[in-house]
């Protein structure tokens, strides 16, 4: 298993869409490496033939009828929006030249 450099920490923060300060990045570099060290214990186990467990209870797919049911009204769905225009959430421009 690897250890994380400062550049790695910055890369992961970007992947995670977390804007971190220099102080946070420095602190995380040390802490994440310390935590990753704890993960090393797993390498003691030979798991080549062990199947992974994604979830623990046995459940079959349960399907329901594809029938309409009551849902939030546009007003309810938009009630918490930081910025709205009519029945829409306002987002920054994501496609260049879109106007």
């Amino acid at each position: 298993m690897a250890s994380l450099s400062r550049a790695d920490v910055e890369h992961v923060a970007l992947l995670a869409r977390l804007g971190l300060t220099d102080a946070e990045l420095a602190l995380l570099e040390g802490q994440l490496n310390h935590i990753l060290d704890q993960y090393q214990v797993l390498s003691r186990l030979d798991t080549d033939t062990i199947p992974p467990t994604a979830q623990v209870i046995e459940l079959e797919n349960i399907l329901r009828d594809d029938a309409p049911r009551a849902s939030l009204t546009p007003g309810e769905a938009l009630a918490g929006a930081p910025e709205r225009a009519g029945d829409y959430f306002v987002v920054p421009v994501v496609v260049e030249g879109a106007d």
Partner: peptide, 20 residues
């Protein structure tokens, strides 16, 4: 964008980074 704390900081990526 849809609910909760929101910081607008220029473009969509900057918004995500600042909000989160």
């Amino acid at each position: 964008i849809r609910f909760g704390h929101s910081v607008r900081d220029g473009d969509v990526l900057a918004d995500y980074l600042a909000t989160r």
